[in-house]
């Protein structure tokens, strides 16, 4: 393949992914409103379009035409920059998520991933840690105590849970012997899914993922009863929409990561034994990936509308006294498995 071919193929992949991302994020918001409605015995949005399906566009349009307010006390530059940092980080992470095995289109062998880098997981870890900058900038630059507290909480929370998250991933990496997401998926061939082999690691990872994405029960940075709106108290209009989208984009990333690391990515156990042709297999596998992600997303929403927010001290206790030791135990457990069964 020539350089141009690679560039063109990458651009097409980026375009497809960005469009899909925006759409999925928009419909994730819709989905969340529906799920919350169902849990509360309500109907949810059903006015805009068929069954309210155009609701996300109405929401976005409303946000765009609202007045953009920048507080007098704000640090103007950082205040404007913050939502873009959050958005950029959220979207850049998609680059390394594999959606399926390689496919052959028009004679090109194309990997269903934007950037097949061999340190993909490190890249994800690095970017999600950067994501906290968006929130911290927003909190600090707004010139409001609520925003500042939200920002500070967010960074403290990120740091605490990043540790157990990293150790949880280490367990998966021990199996895969690679940082490449595709290798990790391939290593979970058949029923060798990490979720089965290392359930403790799975739990610590999921909990950390919730914390990293600031979702309930870990949404202390934007705890409404205490902090008005947390770090985005002073944001409105398009910039608020930025944070809003970033939060949901982060959720999708987290789900993709969970699927990739623990649910075998696009794998459908033993599908190659069924003797489908290649195209159908790939389609089924991409479908399987999407299905798994949607399931995890549903759990995200389900948890949000079930469990109340933790207190700040509880958050820190769980992070350092429970999750961190558990993730260490997980590594020992995985190491022992590898030693004993010589996997």
């Amino acid at each position: 393949m020539s350089v141009w071919e690679i560039i063109i193929i990458s651009l097409i992949k980026i375009l497809i992914i960005v469009v899909i991302m925006f759409l999925t994020v928009a419909y994730l918001v819709y989905f969340e409103r529906k799920v919350s409605a169902w849990i509360q015995n309500r109907v949810g949005p059903n006015r805009v379009g068929y069954r309210g399906l155009l609701q996300p566009f109405a929401d976005v349009f409303k946000l765009l035409v609202k007045e953009d307010i920048v507080p007098d006390a704000a640090n103007k530059t950082l205040h404007k920059l913050a939502p873009f940092v959050a958005l950029f980080v959220a979207f850049a992470t998609y680059a390394v998520i594999p959606f399926g095995p390689s496919v052959n289109i028009f004679g090109h062998d194309i990997q269903l991933v934007v950037a097949d880098v061999n340190i993909g997981i490190l890249y994800v870890l690095a970017l999600t840690s950067l994501g906290v900058y968006g929130i911290t900038f927003a909190g600090w630059s707004s010139g409001s105590k609520y925003s500042l507290l939200g920002g500070v909480r967010s960074s403290a929370q990120m740091i605490s849970y990043e540790v157990s998250m990293g150790f949880s991933i280490a367990g998966v990496l021990l199996f895969a012997e690679s940082l490449r997401p595709i290798d990790i998926v391939n290593a979970q061939y058949g029923w060798m899914w990490s979720v089965i082999l290392q359930p403790i690691g799975f739990i610590t990872f999921v909990v950390s993922a919730f914390a990293e994405t600031n979702r309930l029960p870990f949404d202390l940075p934007e705890a409404e009863p205490e902090l008005v709106g947390g770090y985005h108290t002073e944001y409105s209009s398009f910039k608020f929409a930025g944070f809003f989208l970033a939060e949901y984009a982060n959720m999708i990333i987290a789900s993709c990561m969970i699927v990739t690391l623990y649910f075998g990515g696009w794998q459908i156990p033993y599908i190659d034994k069924l003797g489908f042709n290649e195209t159908l297999t790939v389609l089924l596998q991409v479908g399987a990936f999407v299905f798994k992600v949607i399931l995890i997303l549903f759990v995200f929403l389900w948890v949000r509308w079930t469990i109340p927010r933790f207190r700040y001290d509880q958050l820190m206790n769980i992070g350092w006294k429970v999750m961190f030791p558990l993730s260490l135990i997980n590594i020992v457990w995985v190491a022992a498995l590898i030693m004993i069964f010589n996997l």
Binding site: V35, W38, I39, N41, R42, V303, T306, I307
Partner: peptide, 15 residues
Amino acid sequence: GMILTFKNMLRPKVT
């Protein structure tokens, strides 16, 4: 708790 909320999702709507 999650089972409880899931059961609620299947109950008739009051809206």
